[in-house]
Simulated scan of single mutants.
Amino acid sequence: MRRRIIALTLALGATGAGFTAHRLITDAPPRRSGATVGATKLIAAGRGPAVAKEITRPFEPAALTQAVRAYLGTRPGKAGVMATDLRTGLSFGQNEKGRFVTASIMKVDILSSLVLQRQRDRRGLTAGQRELAGRMIRESDNGAADSLYSAAGGGDGVRATNKRFGLKSTTPFPGSWGSSLTTPSDQVRLLRTLVSDKSPIKPLSRQYILGLMGSVLHEQAWGVSAAALPGEKVALKNGWTPVHHQGHGWAVNSIGRITGPDHDFLVAVCSGDSPTMEAGVSTVEHVAEMVVSTMRDSR
Rank of each mutant, 00 (worst) to 15 (best):
V281T: 12
T15H: 04
G154P: 00
G175D: 03
D85V: 03
L125E: 04
G134R: 12
S147W: 03
V51P: 00
G89R: 01
S199N: 01
S140R: 09
S169D: 14
T276Q: 07
L132E: 09
I6Q: 15
K237S: 01
Q94H: 13
E131V: 13
H248C: 08
I5F: 15
R87V: 07
A268I: 05
R123Y: 05
G211R: 06
D85E: 04
P275S: 08
D27P: 11
R99V: 12
V37Y: 11
R135E: 13
D186I: 03
L191T: 07
S205Q: 13
T9C: 11
D141T: 08
G249W: 09
E232Q: 10
V216H: 03
G46C: 00
Q220F: 06
I43K: 05
W222Q: 10
V267S: 07
Q66W: 12
A17G: 15
E278Q: 14
E131D: 14
L167S: 08
G77V: 10
P172Y: 00
L116M: 01
S104Q: 00
A151M: 01
A52E: 03
Y71R: 13
A288R: 10
N95E: 13
P30G: 14
T283G: 13
R118N: 06
D156E: 10
A52L: 02
A50N: 06
G166W: 06
N142D: 14
L72T: 11
A226M: 10
T126V: 02
V101H: 03
R299Q: 12
M136H: 04
P184Y: 03
F173T: 06
L167C: 07
P58N: 10
M213K: 04
L64C: 07
G34I: 02
V81I: 11
S293W: 10
G153I: 00
F92T: 08
G128P: 06
W250I: 10
R99T: 11
L125S: 08
T36F: 08
E289N: 15
V224D: 07
V108C: 00
Q187M: 10
A288N: 07
T88S: 12
V37P: 07
G13P: 15
A235E: 13
S112I: 02
L90M: 08
P29R: 08
E289P: 10
P174M: 04
K168V: 11
G128K: 05
L191S: 09
D197L: 05
G175M: 00
I5G: 13
A17P: 06
K41W: 02
V269Y: 07
L266T: 04
A251I: 02
P242C: 09
A221K: 12
K163T: 11
L86F: 02
G46R: 01
T241V: 12
